[in-house]
Write a protein that binds this DNA or RNA. Structure first.
Lengths: 347, 347
DNA sequence: CGTATTTACTTAATCGTTTACCTTCCTTTG
DNA sequence: CAAAGGAAGGTAAACGATTAAGTAAATACG
């Protein structure tokens, strides 16, 4: 690898001059600068990141935390798409992305924070992880520039998909389609689940919908079998719902399977809605009505906020950025006559 | 950050002694070693990767090339799963993963190779990219340890999903189910497509199947609309196929849509098969019969080969590792009476 | 007992950059 | 014309590690 030393030799100047020329300092003459740069180009010079890092304490590399206990973010459409968008955003600004992990190094196991410091990451995006682990707490409290996705910490910037508005929009959409008996199978407990669930209740209240307790079920995210089971429960109720909202699109397919099996047509006999807006859901008939989260925007915001925190730590606000989703109108929710009001539903 | 200097001060030894103690060299006394290590632990020491890299020319970081022109690997199930598996494999061995890109740095745009050298990657996995670009050629010819996925270069280790065997198995399976009129919508031209297509023809020959030209169609990968169109063409033939093989699972859903629309039941009226074995395909009824590629194994092999090339460059063979997939038997391919032989099919 | 070897460290150079602080050589300016 | 200031570049230390080579003391050996 050609270094500044090599260039300095060729140009007959000192290494310092080369460095300054390449970094466009203004105490180097125009001609010299030009010559040095040209020679650097010709010799195929590019800087040694390690050396640069060592001196400047800047890596132009950001870590991304992507290890959930239950699944890898990579295998999860939502997170993968957010990461993809974030990747494009930060690469555009000259940063690279490295996965943060907690596995062994030559010097034994390191925590997330230790890994970040050891690698000299300029910042870290906490996208998909167990937010309640002590290691994550240690990380966000360390003061390293950080942005979380869909989780709030004190004094840490966050980008949040608006689950409250999302659920409200979705439920309202379904309501407007004439549905009054609407069940919601929510995911396992988490901040996101809480938001959606409380928004569901609040919106139902505003719409004057009475939701019987048995219409609220739980099934883990992306668990088609679980969704299938809960759908079974719901359909077997004395007064089954006319529409079921699933924890996510994946789960919705689990419900859909049962409908198929029972010869129920979607949406003619029963309506379903998902959440997320994963790609495949737009490509299978009946296309799934779902709340499509704006993964491109979420990723962009995470990336931009993070870099802003890195580059302008003083003037960048620590804030929560809320990104709106929108109802993707597939054809899995039927227009029906609102013949039964909420009063008909046993509570 | 606490450095070796700090430790050396506390322990009253030289920095060299600290380094050697921590790296377990055998010219340091047992007691001293123990003490130094303990102090290091207490002080929360962990090595500065940049400094280490600068001296040792080892980064314990591998690059992964993941930028296709048409799509990001992250948004593609097959690649995302391979990456996930590879990530786990290399992290287990103490390596990190950074995405290789070609975008701007302080010093202007860099090629893939320049990026790799600048960052000091120990190796690079070329997973999802345009293999015909000059930059990729430059990269693989540079001699940096590299492993490609599903593409062969001279003198570069490759991990390949066995598309020849895969297509043979899939077609044979379908044949054994009694199908004789089998169409294949293949993907856009690529090495992978070539393998599958030629294997399709060869296997058909072996099975004594005559495949009329109009049974071979093209539709880009993961293009549900295209698959829909080609399915239309096939179903409208005078003698339509009894089974259609799609370029991938995603596309298969495109075909499925048309069946639904026309009131054709899968598999009773028409059979379909995909390729890849993406997760969702196993969770929607009728579950898709497909050739499931072993992404976990593919990723593991890429990771292991790469690290082996890095750590034992002399003794590691440059070779092509072939990973077998297997037919995932869903219920989208019906058992039928082989009432029509290949002879019935107009050629 | 004197020399050779081993043990346990220390010294100092080095990796490739950056940058504070000099040093020259000019150009101004009163 | 002397002093001051600016322009252009050089010197050398530093970032945090690694490692070849050196050294002093302890041990082994003939």
């Amino acid at each position: 690898m050609v270094s500044m030393k090599d260039i300095s030799a060729v140009c007959g100047v000192s290494v310092a001059t080369v460095s300054k020329a390449l970094n466009d300092h203004d105490d180097i003459g125009k001609e010299t600068k030009k010559r040095i740069r040209q020679v650097a180009e010709e010799m195929g010079y590019f800087p040694n990141t390690a050396a640069k890092m060592l001196k400047t304490h800047r890596s132009y590399n950001v870590g991304v935390l992507f290890n959930h206990e239950d699944y890898s973010g990579l295998t999860h459409d939502y997170y993968a798409f957010v990461l993809d968008s974030m990747k494009n955003t930060v690469e555009e600004k000259g940063y690279d992305i490295t996965f943060v992990n907690t596995s062994k190094n030559r010097a034994g196991a390191m925590s997330y924070l230790e890994h970040c410091k050891s690698r000299g990451f300029d910042g870290v995006a906490i996208v998909c992880t167990d937010f309640y682990s002590p290691e994550i707490l240690q990380l966000v409290r360390s003061g390293i520039p950080a942005v979380t996705l869909d989780h709030l910490f004190n004094n840490v910037s966050a980008v949040m998909s608006n689950n409250v508005q999302g659920m409200q929009d979705l439920l309202t959409y379904i309501y407007k389609k004439g549905h009054r008996r609407i069940a919601y199978i929510h995911g396992a407990d988490s901040a996101v689940t809480q938001s959606r669930l409380s928004s569901f209740y609040r919106t139902a209240g505003q719409l004057d919908l009475t939701i019987p307790d048995e219409y609220i079920r739980m099934s883990p995210y992306r668990d088609t079998k679980g969704a299938y089971r809960e759908t079974q429960y719901l359909l077997d109720l004395e007064k089954p719902p006319t529409c079921i909202i699933y924890p996510d699109d994946f789960s919705a397919f689990g419900g859909y399977n049962l409908m198929q099996e029972r010869g129920l047509r979607v949406p003619d006999d029963i309506s379903i809605a998902g959440y997320d807006g994963i790609r495949i859901a737009r490509h299978i008939e009946p296309t799934l009505t779902t709340l499509r989260q704006d993964t491109a925007e979420l990723g962009r915001q995470v990336g931009e906020k993070l870099i802003s925190l890195i580059e302008h730590p003083k003037t960048t606000l620590v804030e929560t950025i809320v990104v709106e989703g929108h109802v993707f109108e597939g054809n899995s929710v039927a227009e029906i006559n609102a013949k039964s009001t909420s009063k008909d539903v046993p509570s």
